[in-house]
Simulated assay, not measured.
Amino acid sequence: MDSQLTLTQQALQARANAYAPYSGFAVGAALVAEDGRTFYGCNVENASYSMTICAERSAVFSAVAAGVTRFRKLAIVGGKTDEEAAQVPCLPCGACLQVLAEFCPPDFPILLTDGVHLLGEFLPAQFRL
């Protein structure tokens, strides 16, 4: 099986743990670290919407909490139904892109259901101190 498909399938499995009672839009992410470990994330909504965390940031924060800050690739899936999540690309939001830019170069691969994209394509002007 294609390794990209495998990572996408892992993101779909992570999506199953999403907590999205308000939007109904469940997202899953699978983040591969440089050492080969995979970290998973799902979106967790909150009644105070600004407290919601996206799947991508959930995966990154989980990796950082484990002491990992170097990554190879990320797969993201999301949608209101399993079929939508498996077929329609779910693009990362600006906050997630900026968090990824903290740890990843512009050529970092992001796998969506329509193929591989680069972080720099989605966030060409990263914020830097």
Rank of each mutant, 00 (worst) to 15 (best):
A18N: 03
H117L: 10
V77N: 07
Q10E: 14
A59C: 14
G78M: 05
F25K: 09
F25I: 12
S62L: 04
K73D: 07
L123Y: 12
P106R: 14
V77R: 04
C54F: 10
R15N: 08
L111A: 03
S58M: 12
V68R: 08
E102D: 08
L31E: 02
Q87H: 15
C90G: 01
G36T: 05
A47F: 06
M1H: 12
L111H: 06
A75S: 15
P89F: 14
P106T: 11
T8G: 03
L5Q: 15
F108A: 07
A11K: 12
V88S: 07
V64G: 01
A65V: 01
T113V: 07
F122W: 14
C90N: 10
F39G: 06
G67F: 08
A125P: 00
G120D: 04
Y19H: 14
R57W: 01
A75C: 13
H117G: 03
A75Y: 09
G36R: 08
S48P: 00
G41E: 10
Q98P: 00
A85V: 06
R70F: 01
Y40R: 07
R37P: 08
L31I: 07
C42L: 01
F127R: 15
I53A: 02
A65L: 02
D2R: 10
H117M: 09
G36M: 05
V44A: 10
Q9C: 05
C104L: 00
P105L: 06
R72K: 13
I110E: 00
L118P: 00
A30W: 02
Q126D: 00
L100Y: 04
P21T: 13
A11R: 12
L74F: 03
H117F: 12
S58Y: 09
Q9R: 14
K73Q: 15
L118K: 15
V64M: 01
G28V: 10
A14D: 06
C54V: 03
A95I: 13
T69K: 09
F39R: 03
F39N: 05
V116A: 15
R37H: 13
T8M: 12
T113C: 04
A125Y: 15
P92S: 15
A101F: 01
L74S: 09
A20I: 02
A26H: 08
S62F: 02
A85L: 04
F71T: 05
L7W: 03
Q98V: 07
L123V: 11
E121D: 13
S62I: 01
R57C: 11
G24H: 06
F122V: 00
A11D: 10
D114I: 06
I53Y: 00
S62M: 04
A33T: 11
L12T: 09
L118A: 14
A14K: 04
M1R: 13
